[in-house]
């Protein structure tokens, strides 16, 4: 895949140590995107977590962790959303190119193209695209990166709602900021900028104080995912030509052999000595 310069993309810098789990972002997202509320009961997870997962109605969600570690309480929050990958798996597998990584950063979805095959859902390493399961002719739903706001010079709705934890700006600056924070507060953070390299780099990057797996971050490969399929797919023309060509050549040879054999047989038949056709087991 073509390697576009992603350093000038806009990116989110989400500092989980600053997230208070207030879920203003979750509500702001629903408001901007006019998403229906989900019907929930009690809590669907630790702490006050709701709804149970991202869905066609929920593009971003705060995952709660409420547990004890070495006798100390841990009450932690993790914002799930589309990672707006630099090289999005969803875009690469979509047969109709319904996903597009924009120059501004967001990976957007062109609903009018989608045929609803759900390959994007299988492909996304972060489990982001969701489906309109309730509909007869469903489409895919996911965080839009608030592309409509970005284009107007606004920040994404969730970033606007958040007091402290969500930063938004050019990706290289966000990474620099993240690394500065790691250097300045080494005790506060796990020494890692999640999203800098994950899945080949994403436009959503995280800092946390707890191990990433404890917060429920997905373990993903560092290689851009489209490469995994492309390494096979790029062979397609070659395979087609070599199989086609090979078989053609083969058949030409066998046909020629047959023809020669037939001619020979015909000749022999004329001479009256037809060999019996034995099973060649």
């Amino acid at each position: 895949m073509s390697k576009a310069d992603t350093s000038k993309n806009n990116a989110f810098l989400i500092d989980m140590t600053k997230c208070t789990g207030c879920r203003g972002c979750q509500v702001a997202c629903k408001q901007w995107n006019q998403l229906e509320a989900e019907e929930t009961e009690f809590f669907s997870g630790e702490g006050y977590q709701n709804p149970p997962a991202m869905s066609e109605y929920t593009f971003t969600r705060i995952k709660f962790r409420d547990y004890q570690k070495n006798g100390q309480n841990e009450f932690a929050f993790y914002k799930e959303m589309c990672m707006h990958c630099n090289e999005p798996a969803c875009a690469s597998v979509c047969p109709v190119g319904a996903f597009e990584k924009t120059a501004e950063g967001p990976v957007i979805y062109k609903a009018e193209r989608c045929i609803g095959c759900r390959f994007c859902m299988i492909a996304c390493p972060f489990g982001v695209p969701k489906y309109e399961w309730s509909k007869g002719l469903p489409l895919v739903k996911k965080c839009t990166g608030c592309y409509s706001r970005i284009k107007e010079g606004l920040q994404p709705a969730c970033a606007t709602a958040c007091a402290m934890a969500i930063g938004y700006g050019p990706r290289d600056e966000m990474i620099k900021l993240a690394e500065q924070r790691l250097a300045r507060y080494p005790d506060r953070y796990i020494n890692k900028v999640y999203g800098k390299e994950e899945a080949g780099g994403t436009s959503v990057i995280y800092l946390t104080s707890l191990p990433f797996d404890e917060l429920g971050f997905k373990a993903v490969t560092l290689r851009p995912l489209p490469g995994y399929t492309w390494q096979a797919l790029r062979l397609v023309p070659g395979v087609f030509l070599s199989v086609g060509g090979g078989l053609s050549a083969f058949s030409w040879i066998t046909h020629r052999r047959d023809r020669l054999k037939n001619e020979k047989q015909a000749e022999l038949a004329e001479q009256g000595s037809v060999p019996s056709k034995e099973e060649q087991e």
């Binding site: 929930t40 809590f43 006050y48």
Partner: peptide, 12 residues
Amino acid sequence: LPWLVELVPDMF
């Protein structure tokens, strides 16, 4: 407000 009810739907 449904969006807030979704978050904390029940007395606990």
